[in-house]
Design a protein around this nucleic acid. Sequence first.
DNA 1: TTGTAAGCGTTATCAA
DNA 2: TTGATAACGCTTACAA
Lengths: 342, 342
Amino acid sequence: MKIGQATIKDIARELNISSSTVSRALKDYPGISDETKRKVKEVAEKLNYRPNAIALSLRKSRSFTIGVIIPEVVHFFFSTVISGIEEVASSRGYNVILSQTNESFAREKSSIDTMLSNQIDGFLVSFSKETTEFDHFSKLLDQSYPIVFFDRVPNIPNAISVMVDDYQGAYKATSHLISQGYTKISHLVGPPTLAISRERERGYRDSLANHGIQIYPELIIECAYGTSDEGFKVTEALLKNGKTFPDAIFANNDMAAVGAMLACRSMGIKVPDDIGIVGFSNWQFCSMIEPSLTSVSQPGFKIGETATQMLLDMIEKKLDPDSITAPIVLETELLVRKSSVK
Amino acid sequence: MKIGQATIKDIARELNISSSTVSRALKDYPGISDETKRKVKEVAEKLNYRPNAIALSLRKSRSFTIGVIIPEVVHFFFSTVISGIEEVASSRGYNVILSQTNESFAREKSSIDTMLSNQIDGFLVSFSKETTEFDHFSKLLDQSYPIVFFDRVPNIPNAISVMVDDYQGAYKATSHLISQGYTKISHLVGPPTLAISRERERGYRDSLANHGIQIYPELIIECAYGTSDEGFKVTEALLKNGKTFPDAIFANNDMAAVGAMLACRSMGIKVPDDIGIVGFSNWQFCSMIEPSLTSVSQPGFKIGETATQMLLDMIEKKLDPDSITAPIVLETELLVRKSSVK
DNA sequence: TTGTAAGCGTTATCAA
DNA sequence: TTGATAACGCTTACAA
């Protein structure tokens, strides 16, 4: 598009040689005289020549671009993952093309379509909350199109996944509350469509069971949007009208946890004395709020890095997808702060 | 790359017609029989045909992709801008390719290079803190390559910029502190390379001056990284060893403001009673911390939207860059919370 | 209404 | 050591 964007042909014309020679000289192919190489590079420099990656893509049927499908960008965890993705991709010479679905299934599908049109070499996907049907991914996997799922991973054949140990994170969080003497522990559950929600709930339940603590079904409450507003509302309702009054809340995400904390404050309930609170994800604000919020930290950057390494290895055939039979599971860390320590 | 990715030729072969006819049929060109159109579309469907955007780009010398150069992704303001960019770009049929510089000048230049190789149609740029020299942008502007700068904008000819009124935001913040009775107001200044830092400082100074409040140079402190750690350290130093003890702090960003707040707390100084604090950017945590943090909110999403609209309009020749002679300046809003109200 | 052919910028193959 | 040519997938004059 740029006027005067020089091409190989321009260099060839200037030197009265063929474009194939120019191409070879630029890449230091053997069998080209040093003299020619020198001249070609000189002219390339002079004309400010820049290889056209689009032409290359067409030629090689490889775009050196990967597509990232993500629910939200304005989100501590996801933006951290993106950062890890970007880091690895750029160091290995790949471009990152980004699309956020805003948790919409339709948007997810259409993003995939445009990216496919753009001949991207592979996908990094964390699917939307609305996504309950995975044909659009299965189809691609059947064609052995390289995809790595992260965090939100589907339960379909041949899917390669990088995730954190949500079960263990939730187990540790709950056990911590128990160790602090809390016994009526409520759980704010995430969207039921996501395995991470179910795993976290499972970790919560197992911890209670293994510690011989009673499980109160009425303390297990869905909090699907994961906003602080929602956390506020469900907590307020729970504390006002609930059959059983909790002495702790384990929220499946930090936003909801903050909402719960604000609800407690608005009702004059002391955290952590009356009610202990633990969140999930370790958003930056956890250490800034008062009381500081205990949370399960997920290695977002590492997830991004790992998923991208695997994807690029698959693309470059250094990694056989069939050799990966189980999800890669990264450890979480429980960061204990004031909100849960009596 | 995918085995069996159908092309126009495949459709043509299947129907024994020419590929140009197929091309035209697919785009509902006039002068193609309905019968042919029907058949072509049917076969396209059957073969799961997907146009190759790379081939199209090469043909049209247009990639329908814009490049975004951004300092950090894990940053409330920038991620909000990205969200706005993504929204507009995708609704207008453009892809977004993303590169974060991590505040490195070298990285900024190399990102631009690869993006140019990839024939992107235009740039959206917020440059790095290290960037003090703008030749790499000027060169592109001279070739009338479409670029829109946002937030961090350079002072070079023909640059098109979308920014917020940092001066006014800082002025409002400072005036608010004054109205609350604070008089020894410290300012934590951002990186001196960025105009936004200088503008915020200017707003701060002008507000003091216009209100007839004394300016203490020793209360104006550089806090270039803008982390909460740095904010903590400089505040602690100021409170311990400073010549003049402040009764308020206006930090050029929220992270530094939180650091300042934590420093006060660690020294037993009450916010807002002993010291009032105001930040800038309105990160999500502002309303979650205790005391909640007064902050100047910037319309990040709108900045992203506006910049992208302008860029795409320039690319599509709906907007003549020469008609834009001044930066687009969006309003800020001061959100008064507890940290600054006595 | 449809087909032919050239071209976007590269590079691989074959020939010289 | 270099050159001519074809091909990647698509669009578009021009011709039929």
